[in-house]
Computed example of a mutant assay.
Amino acid sequence: MPRVMVSDRIVTVFGGSGFVGRHVIRCLAEQGLRVRNAVRRPDLAGHLQPLGSVGQIHSVQANIRDARSIRNAVEGADAVVNLVGILHESGRQTFDAVHVQGARRIAEAASAAGASQFVQISAIGADANSASAYARSKASGEEAVRAAFASAVIMRPSVVFGPEDSFFNRFAGMARISPFLPLIGGGGTRFQPVFAGDVGRAVAKAVAGEVAPGVYELGGPEVRTFRQLMEYVLQVTGRKRALLSIPFGVANMQAKVLQVLPNPMLTTDQVAALRTDNVVSDVAQASGRTLEGLGIRPAALETIVPSYLYSYRKAGQFTDMHAS
């Protein structure tokens, strides 16, 4: 990255080693901030070092179930960002433990440490009355954060895309070996995919104090149905696969079997979540609490996704996509 003037301002980022975290840390480093990456395994976070100048990014050990390690991680921090989240439960990693209790501990520690900004990454669809336990836990986590840090900025992204994402890469990989791609509930659920880099820029603005407290919904420039997204995956990867419509009831029965696996491709909770559209609300649009409202022009799928899904083509980047 270009050399920048590094300030004395410290930002602690929880979960910065993940997919979205890398983009957030890069954007923070570009602002010249000192980044303290709080993770369970600092020894596995070396890939973040090239995102900043020498010594600008430092990883420390922290566990969101351990209040003491959290306090140590936020000590002296001017701002705190919480990116920690899970898509399915496993053992002690439950939605309540991660999205609610973990978020509460981090926000309380940030407040006690005198941090000036707190940014919580939630998700579009967070709703205390949702049929999805994931969505309910995200809503409870937001409530816990606001109770501990009243001026917190909460950001709810739609499906996030970018290199190493868990959405487009998963279905592109499936299309490589499967004769069909599933359309749960017929594929009519609407999404508004947002680029991870744009989420990072939004977080950086909040850390800089340029964003008013409250809830923001982050979506890309286009709304597409699940069917349209699967068609796009096949188009980009040059694969011809059937699109198989699976009723919600059937998908739920299949998920009951799949969710016992260590890394399930589908859970009953995810099936429940797919019954609701995952797009920026009219309220957020009207109040300007969106990427555009923050002065960020969101990147389109076409400008990013082909740059990493080419590896799923039969001949990789050498595939002639115009051949008949």
Rank of each mutant, 00 (worst) to 15 (best):
V223G: 03
A208C: 11
P213W: 02
L218R: 08
E222S: 14
G214M: 13
G219A: 06
V236G: 10
Y232H: 14
E231L: 11
Y232A: 11
P221Y: 06
G249Y: 02
I246W: 00
L234P: 10
G238E: 12
G219K: 09
Q235L: 13
V250Q: 01
T237I: 09
V236N: 10
A242F: 13
E222L: 10
V233R: 06
F248P: 03
R224I: 08
E222H: 13
G209F: 00
R227D: 04
V215G: 03
K240Q: 15
F248K: 10
Y232V: 06
G214T: 11
M230G: 05
A242P: 10
L243F: 07
A242G: 12
F248N: 04
T225S: 15
A208Q: 15
I246H: 01
V223Y: 00
G249D: 02
Y216A: 07
Q235N: 13
A251P: 03
E222P: 09
N252H: 13
R241W: 03
F226E: 10
P247L: 02
G238C: 09
L234N: 06
V211N: 04
T237G: 04
G220V: 06
G220M: 04
V233H: 08
V236C: 08
I246L: 01
V211P: 03
G249N: 05
Y216P: 11
A251V: 02
K240N: 15
V223Q: 09
G220L: 05
L243H: 07
G220P: 02
A242E: 12
L229V: 01
Q228Y: 00
T225W: 07
L244M: 14
Q228S: 12
V236W: 07
S245C: 03
P247S: 06
V215R: 13
A208P: 12
V223I: 15
L229T: 01
V250G: 01
G209L: 05
Y216M: 07
R227K: 13
E217T: 07
G220C: 08
E231R: 15
V236A: 09
V211K: 04
R224M: 13
V236H: 11
M230I: 06
T225E: 06
N252G: 09
Q235Y: 10
V236E: 14
Q228C: 05
A242L: 14
V233A: 07
L244Y: 02
Y216K: 12
E217A: 01
G219N: 05
V211I: 11
E217Q: 13
V233F: 10
P247D: 02
E217D: 01
S245E: 14
V250N: 00
S245Y: 01
G249F: 02
L234K: 07
R241V: 07
R227Y: 05
G249Q: 02
M230W: 02
G220A: 08
A212H: 15
V233M: 07
Q228L: 01
E231D: 11
R241F: 04
Y216C: 07
V236F: 05
R239D: 09
A208I: 11
I246N: 03
E217L: 05
V215C: 08
Y216S: 07
A251M: 02
F248Y: 14
P247N: 05
F226C: 03
L218D: 05
F226P: 12
G214W: 13
V233I: 15
I246K: 00
P213Y: 04
Y216N: 13
P213D: 09
T237C: 10
R241T: 08
Q228K: 11
V223N: 01
T225P: 06
R224L: 15
A242N: 13
M230Q: 12
N252L: 09
T237A: 04
Q228G: 12
L244E: 02
